[in-house]
Design a protein around this nucleic acid. Structure first.
Lengths: 238, 238
DNA sequence: CGCTGTCTTGAGGACGGTCAATGTTCGTGG
DNA sequence: CCACGAACATTGACCGTCCTCAAGACAGCG
């Protein structure tokens, strides 16, 4: 069952068995990718899209000095570059954080599905717009929150996403990102990220140690990060 | 010709006369909206989508203190809330900046188009992903650029968008945003925005006066703002 | 057991925020 | 045509958050 986590906790019930079977039939291959590897570079034409079955990936852009800005962090169940199907190329790089298992779907097959399966098409469209909604929240985070609130917000977001696909129990989960990665996500330096994480620990909100996140006070963390999960379009709000 | 500016300079040639006719036939009504009015509030269900024929609109989110963060600025030719069609509700507010002329398309009609017109569907999907690409660039801008570069980048973006629909000659255009609006776009205060605009003038890069932007040194402005228009997916790059 | 990447901590400085006062523009109505 | 008020723009002084630079501690891995 390749697409076991696709749209899980998010309208998955609208995916009929037929649609799922058609999607699975469109898969051209499964691949294993090593950790910390750039899979697609910006501007290169793409002819397949990638579904992430297991692992963590991220999308990022570079500035003139070569510093990165992450624009998305992906977990199991995400169609990481489905937007490349209508767009034709990516405006950013796509890389793995951990070793990953992915399934690839040729765009030619997706064109076929668009003709015969409007319901599936609309759900795939929905999934790309979910990413856009997260982008908007990231804009909000960078534009309106200070450093400690940004970190809190991001941790709440990633926890909620992981919980939606059964990878978090609500308080504890694996997050394979260094403090430098987190800084590149939140628009602050690694040094300042370190200080913010210390402060979150001091305030008894959460700890990170060896890629393991423990949320001590979920409500307090969400409050500090002004986190409201409605932009994640979950079936069961909360 | 309602959709004269739809996807203009961006794959409009892929829109067949048939597709355009079908889209126009789906329009349920034209409306005039007054300036500075909230048209859709977040979380309320939406049953139609709005195409902007003339004027400026924006999308924004509020923080706990009530301060705004703009997440998009829309110009003629934009389908401002087409993402509401697959999503079902908006995760942000949608408001006019100027008086606007809009056309409304019921989602029920779009469902019909999805069944019969995969080519049109893919182009509409594309247009929502264009917004997502701009979101990513906004994340980059807020996360990696300092204040003056953010302003430069935004001005380059809006100029390019306006030029694509014939509303800018490349150096001079109308931009109905106050310095407070620009601050809410770039994640800085109105006071600091004022200082940055003065510096851009002092550096002989651009001026703004009474909503009129004059770009004195386009190359210099793009350089300062690290602006590369490839994320706008224009037909003629450059 | 040493190398490398990651984390931690400190000191000093710059960028942008806050607060507050003043100037300018423009629409409205007398 | 002028008076008025409201919104917008401008400027200055002060301050805090976060950055920069630098050194050292720690952990994982060959």
């Amino acid at each position: 069952m390749i697409f076991a986590d696709l749209l899980r906790s998010r309208r998955r019930h609208q995916l009929t068995a037929d649609d799922l079977a058609a999607l699975e039939a469109s898969v051209s291959g499964l691949r294993s990718l090593p950790a910390r590897t750039t899979m697609i570079s910006r501007d290169e034409p793409v002819r397949t899209s990638t579904y992430l079955m297991e692992g963590f990936m991220c999308r990022y852009m570079d500035d003139q000095k070569g510093d990165r800005q992450l624009v998305a962090v992906h977990v199991a169940g995400d169609f990481v570059d489905l937007h490349g199907f209508p767009l034709g190329y990516l405006d950013h790089d796509l890389a793995t954080l951990t070793a990953c298992q992915v399934a690839q779907v040729p765009h030619a097959a997706l064109d076929g599905l668009m003709v015969t399966r409007p319901n599936l098409t609309k759900l795939l469209w929905f999934s790309t717009l979910l990413d856009a909604a997260m982008h908007r929240e990231w804009i909000f985070r960078l534009g309106r929150l200070d450093a400690i609130a940004r970190v809190s917000h991001f941790i709440c977001e990633i926890e909620t996403k992981l919980r939606a696909v059964g990878r978090s129990d609500g308080s504890s989960f694996h997050l394979p990102m260094t403090q430098a990665d987190l800084g590149e996500t939140c628009g602050i330096t690694a040094v300042h990220m370190n200080r913010m994480l210390r402060e979150l620990k001091d305030r008894q909100l959460m700890t990170i140690r060896r890629n393991q996140v423990d949320i001590i006070n979920p409500a307090g963390l969400a409050e500090l990060g002004e986190f409201d999960p409605s932009y994640l379009f979950l079936d069961n709000t909360g």
